[in-house]
Amino acid sequence: MKFAIALYSAAHAPSSRRALRFAEAALAGGHEIVRLFFYQDGVHSASSNIVTPQDEQDLAQQWSTFVSNNQLDGVVCIAAALRRGVLNNDEAARYQRPAVNLQAPWELSGLGQLHDAIQSADRLICFGGP
């Protein structure tokens, strides 16, 4: 089964963790994740500048590791990311901003990537809210 997983909440939201646990279970069950698409506040779940207290879960780090280790296609919506100050090298340079907080394995791209994922997946699963 091919899954497209869309996340709409920041790393500190329980739904971000839930999405990650679902994604792990999907791969463990032998399924394929055609793309992870982070939209709205989900762009914060991809931020590389989150500092979590040591005794708490670092979800953004866990997401990044999960995507890298499984060589997944992790796409962050560029319009949603710019609006929320989640910038990679290119965008920070383009808009002359002092900080970069989006790095590999994440890629910035447009909403077309969400539609493309929906077209190639058997199921779209969205996570967001609390």
């Binding site: 899954f3 646990r21 679902f22 792990e24 279970a25 463990a28 069950g29 399924h31 699963i125």
Partner: peptide, 8 residues
């Protein structure tokens, strides 16, 4: 979670 995946 595995059951969640199955349900989906």
């Amino acid at each position: 979670y595995p059951a969640f995946v199955d349900l989906s």
